[in-house]
Design a protein around this nucleic acid. Structure first.
Lengths: 345, 345
DNA sequence: GCTGGATATCGAAACGTTTTTATGTTAGAT
DNA sequence: ATCTAACATAAAAACGTTTCGATATCCAGC
């Protein structure tokens, strides 16, 4: 197995010093066009390519971006964050970076466990998807690594973030139902402390009030733990148990919407004739379930791409820049919503 | 920003040489229990952790495993390979590796493009998912890197592979239909040159023959290009156009099964009453589509995990070991199949 | 013609490990 | 006691880059 050429071989063959070759390869410094040419020629002839670890050692860069996801989100293979992750993979390649994925538990203690790529100084920047312990974030901050948050934000600390336009999405959803003649519009949410869910809830509230619609508290289920299908089922159950008689439901996300549909079907209610439903996220199965769910589309791959662009910008920038991006959303009308047949008051 | 400790700091504080500290850290060589202890104590006190790139440079290892996927499979975000990929991510963490993902086009020419992690010597082993150009494989071989193929195999060259038990899966599917009384069972496939699809087709054929069922050629659509939903639709169209009157269809995978369902519905045929359908793969939406699809479950994450185990084994082994694993499959009966009501002969 | 600032190239140090070779020490066999 | 083998530690080389400071050349401005 013959050794692959090193920068030394290139320098020798080109009759130049290591430093000059390095400058050419990195497109840096003052190198005359002539020597540049000849170096490039030799590089091509030897088909030389610098070794990542040597480069990393000397330049203190890794060429990697860390992607941190909470354990629950990863192991349940949630389609939402998976899509964001794939978006980062895609964009990272464009910028000559690789993505290193890791998961973290809910409680973070730097004494106990720190993502390995941080210990090994094996990333140049970090993307954090979804809600994680804030101690983890400040720990990474203290390492001086650029951070970009995706679908999560922290009011106090200033970090770049890529966010869903939750307020607008929820407004679109509720306005859609109002336009169809619905007034008794229930809200079904879980994990209400999550900034995204809070926003959706508040926008729901606001939109109804703006339209002059005021409902009893029983129309809002906000104390569910998880924004999962199961959470949706149990929330819907309690919604009806509380005596509410909604003609439409706005669910905090598609998973919960599916849970609602399940429960409604089990009650013998027809969707959308008896109860209309709008979800949020537009996960893949939403368009396959019966009935196809009307929802708010979120460009998940796009969010991942933007996150990578931000983190790469930060890596290259001298000064710390903070950019918050709200990714636009879109109402996708499918089968789960329909105009209210007759108003019963 | 205070410098993080190096192995030198540890050695100094412990009053030992670099080499001894290194031996302790890597759990190698003869180090007395006493010194081992004291080194570990200092490591803890300084919270020292070796730097990946330095380690990589010295030991010529990267701590990474490359995952290669064809461009089409990645960009269409095919849920099948995505799941395998997530499985590798999961297992890699257990073995202290990271996965580096890259995609390759259909035609491979080492003169034109080589995955960057190969050029940079940034992986210790390679996992290849799905069908790729064989020139790529032999190129990697010539680099001396361990290779594990997933859902693909090459007859000539001997490589470790993790395969679906396609033969058994297809047999289960067809036997299930036979047991329900079906005889006119059509096969709908695409990309017939892919080893997995070929196997499914041949097992279909074989199972029918064993049962004494012989059908005209029009019952087999094997010349479709893609194993996609669209491919399924167009294949189903041609199936009926050819005059075949199947009471059941065995589709080469779930995507095609969905395409078939779409076409059958557009023809006004009821599933499963008029035509029963069995798919293959058990992708997520199969259990959400109406009707829920009877299919062959493939443990996709498991395949990714096994692939990582194999490649890690190969990395650690001195000699080249070749292991072929057939991952078991399972028949999942859902709504798209039902007993044949009345036999019309 | 001298000075000073670009421009172009080089030499050497530095990056933080692992690995190889050497050296000393100890215990068991003779 | 002596020799040998195993064990324990050390010293130094090697890994392949980048980067910093030095040196040399060139040209414009006075």
């Amino acid at each position: 197995m013959k050794h692959r050429p090193t920068i030394r071989d290139v320098a020798r063959k080109a009759g130049l010093s290591l430093s000059t070759v390095s400058l050419v390869i990195n497109n840096r410094g003052h190198v005359s066009p002539g020597t540049r040419e000849s170096v490039q020629k030799v590089v091509r002839e030897l088909s030389y390519h610098p070794t990542r670890s040597a480069r990393g050692l000397a330049s203190k860069t890794s060429g990697n971006i860390g992607f941190i996801l909470s354990e629950e989100h990863f192991s349940q293979a949630e389609p939402f964050y998976t899509r964001i992750f794939l978006g980062t993979e895609f964009e990272a390649r464009e910028h000559n970076y690789y993505i290193l994925l890791t998961t973290v538990g809910n409680q973070f203690d730097p004494e106990v466990y720190v993502p390995r790529f941080l210990l090994e100084r094996n990333v140049d920047g970090i993307i954090i998807a979804g809600k994680v312990n804030e101690k983890l974030i400040s720990h990474i901050d203290s390492l001086g690594l650029p951070i970009v948050l995706v679908d999560f934000e922290i009011k106090r600390a200033h970090h770049s973030a890529v966010l869903i336009d939750n307020w607008r999405g929820a407004t679109l959803a509720v306005e859609h139902l109002l336009a169809l003649g619905h007034k008794k519009i229930a809200f079904v949410g879980g994990d209400i402390r999550h900034p995204s869910i809070t926003d959706r809830y508040e926008a729901y509230h606001n939109t109804l009030h703006m339209a002059g619609v005021f409902l009893e508290e029983s129309y809002e289920v906000t104390d569910e733990e998880e924004t999962s299908v199961e959470g949706g089922t149990s929330a819907a159950e309690r919604l009806f148990a509380s005596g509410a008689k909604p003609t439409a439901i706005f669910a905090a996300n598609d998973a919960m919407a599916i849970g609602c549909i399940r429960h409604l079907k089990s009650r013998g209610l027809r969707i959308p004739e008896d109860v209309a439903i709008v979800g949020f996220d537009d996960i893949e199965i939403s368009s396959h379930i019966e009935p196809h769910i009307t929802t708010i589309r979120v460009l998940k791959e796009e969010m991942g791409k933007i996150a990578v662009q931000r983190v790469v910008d930060s890596i290259n920038a001298k000064t710390k820049i903070v950019v918050t991006t709200h990714v636009p959303v879109e109402l996708i009308v499918r089968e789960s919503t329909v105009a209210l047949a007759h108003v019963e008051d």
